[in-house]
Design a protein around this nucleic acid. Structure first.
Lengths: 208, 208
DNA sequence: CTGCTTTTTTACCATTTGGTAAAGTGACGA
DNA sequence: TCGTCACTTTACCAAATGGTAAAAAAGCAG
């Protein structure tokens, strides 16, 4: 069921491993900057330091590369939400989640933009993933938060909008980096300040 | 200095006005969905109900259409921020700004996505606009907010991050609509709930 | 070294895409 | 009614783009 070529039972060679990684890294760079339709195989090939036909030796086509990237992305992207512990202290769990998401905006801006591009354009290649991967987790965690509110541990707000606002505020620094950097010139680490601000924001909202 | 063809001193005819509007509306639809490089003149032509050469009779090319759209967008996009009155009640002014921005996400989602697409891809055709249009306004208004904080009218936070978080949370509902609609199925007007939630969010943050 | 497999390159191709030239059509004032 | 100007269509084109076939080169087990 893999999208990669030669993905039979045989274990991939050292060369395959290395080149697949080079291709995916180059593709992440290009797709995250130009979106799916704006990216070209030639750009990816150049970034990867390989020829275009050579890239098509490793992947079945442009779409296959994109899908592979999105698959790998979803694994890591949902991790921080998974880590939110229903048995932990509610306020601290949520603030820790905000911190982890902010951290990802700093560490993986390309992944954030790849995701943003895909969603912006209607999630044509990711709708299934949203349904089967994100939706159940979202329902589960909003229910947990609702439980915390019902128990009076945190202030009562719509948990869905709470999660949306966490995603929006944290990913903003990666997705809108071009704007942020124009408006805060010479700032060495604007995300540092964001971490402090967002902690205050959600603490004030939720403190019972 | 206009980007449109035949933009001499002569006033545009009725036909020109109608067709330019048709083209720009079609272009907004297509660019906001696919981004600049992903959009094609053929798509725009079809949406506009005109032939491709006919479109190029009214505009100098694909880029000219895009630039025209971005120019018109910036006018309206900054309006809500302009309306924030330094002499009004601080908390109410900011909450009113949040409300206006939320409203725009509901009323003009395509414009929001057009903007988001452009920023996501590094603002290649809008960097000047950000510098000359947005930046001064941003500096002015963050200074106003800082003044309110210094006067003890609202709680003290970094005004820049405050504004970023307002943009992020309000535009999220338009830009990530594909994701939001998957996670809140059957919701007739999710933005209604967002308005309530965001009012609470920023009130709790800023109430002195 | 030898023969076999894996990897890479060269040379293409069909389609799409932004754009143009020029002929044709229509509206409208003199 | 006629000529002029504004608008539209038809027929193209060159470049870019995703993709392929097949030869050449590089690894590598024996």
């Amino acid at each position: 069921m893999s999208v990669e070529k030669t993905a039979t039972a045989k274990k991939p060679s050292r060369i395959q491993l290395r080149n697949r990684k080079k291709i995916l890294d180059a593709a992440l760079e290009v797709f995250s900057q130009h979106g799916y339709r704006g990216a070209t195989l030639d750009q990816i090939a150049e970034h990867a330091g390989l020829s275009k036909p050579n890239i098509l030796y490793y992947f079945d086509g442009k779409e296959a590369i994109h899908v592979t990237l999105l698959n790998k992305l979803m694994e890591n992207w949902l991790d921080p939400l998974h880590e939110m512990n229903p048995n932990g202290d509610p306020l601290e769990e949520i603030c820790a989640y905000v911190r982890r998401k902010t951290e990802m905006s700093r560490e993986f801006p390309r992944e954030s933009r790849l995701f943003a591009n895909e969603i912006l354009q209607g999630a044509p290649r990711m709708a299934p993933h949203l349904e089967t991967g994100l939706k159940p987790l979202f329902d589960e965690k909003t229910a947990v938060i609702q439980g915390w509110m019902d128990a009076g541990k945190i202030n009562r707000v719509d948990p869905r909008h709470l999660v949306f606002s966490i995603w929006a505020t944290t990913q903003h620094y990666a997705d809108f980096e071009a704007q942020v950097s124009v408006l805060t010139p010479g700032e060495k680490d604007i995300i540092q300040g964001a971490e402090t601000y967002l902690d205050t924001l959600f603490r004030k909202l939720l403190a019972p």
